[in-house]
């Protein structure tokens, strides 16, 4: 029970605060006396570019997920299923790259993108995001592929399938749940990314939600944006939480296999 309270109380506070009007927001009442949706209105008002930021985040995180999955599936199939030399070294390298500090590539990439006129573009955020999402994808997918029943593929190979056919017709359909879980994990990590986006995106045109929320203004221009920020926080978090709760079993096994945020 203590654990549940520890985890949920701050989130509850976010929810409650998002329902309070600017006048009530700092009264620190644990239950809102006069709940209002005005903060949610302010989130989508003209002075905040939140709707655009949502679209940007969806596009960036979606592209990152697709690219990382596409290349990750092939690599992790090979790592989980095929016998070849240097397998463990390759796997360890992927793990090591997923632990790689993002700042180490940020400075040179920023200069490169500046020279190419790519600052404030989607691709300038998608490309650096691949550096953490692809190794993450390979690592989690490999453990999912490994856990699938070997005999099926062997049987398909015995029946004359090439490894590629065996992969497409036998393994891939069985792998859908694992791939889907990996997609959720990659999407969340890209959706939550802040450091790279904060450096690259300089105008609302390319800002993802994480950056937008940190720069929010309030209901009126002079208000403290507490309620608005909390409302926006609820909007970007609740869909994630719902998806996570629906697939919690798989997500937990994916997380513990990946061991990476």
């Amino acid at each position: 029970m203590l654990v549940v309270l520890f985890c949920l109380l701050p989130f509850y506070w976010m929810l409650v605060s998002s329902l309070k009007s600017p006048g009530d927001i700092l009264d620190n009442q644990l239950i809102p006396t006069r709940p209002t949706m005005m903060n949610y209105g302010a989130v989508f008002s003209d002075q905040n570019t939140f709707a655009l930021a949502l679209k940007n985040s969806l596009f960036i995180a979606g592209s990152v997920t697709l690219i990382a999955l596409l290349f990750g599936i092939f690599a992790s199939y090979a790592l989980a299923r095929l016998n070849f030399k240097a397998k463990n070294i390759v796997l360890a390298t992927f793990l090591a790259t997923s632990m790689f500090p993002g700042v180490a590539i940020l400075t040179p990439l920023f200069q490169l993108f500046a020279d190419m006129g790519w600052i404030d573009t989607y691709q300038a955020m998608i490309i650096p995001d691949i550096s953490f999402s692809l190794p993450l994808g390979v690592w989690i997918l490999t453990s999912f592929f490994r856990a699938m029943p070997w005999e099926l593929e062997a049987a398909a190979r015995v029946d004359g399938c090439t490894p590629l056919q065996a992969f497409r017709q036998v393994i891939l359909p069985l792998a859908v749940p694992g791939v889907f879980t990996t997609a959720i994990l990659i999407f969340i990590s890209a959706w939550n990314e802040f450091m790279i986006a904060n450096s690259i995106s300089q105008t609302p045109a390319s800002q993802p939600v994480t950056v937008a929320i940190a720069q929010f203004t309030g209901v009126s221009q002079y208000d403290q944006p507490f309620g608005t920020q909390m409302a926006a926080g609820v909007i970007v978090t609740v869909p994630l939480i719902i998806v996570v709760l629906i697939f919690q079993r798989r997500i937990v096994s994916g997380l513990t296999a990946g061991g990476v945020k």
Binding site: V3, C7, I188, F194, L240, L245
Partner: peptide, 12 residues
């Protein structure tokens, strides 16, 4: 409930 803090973006 353990997954909730993990799913919230660090920026939020």
């Amino acid at each position: 409930s353990v997954l909730v803090p993990w799913a919230i973006p660090t920026a939020v």
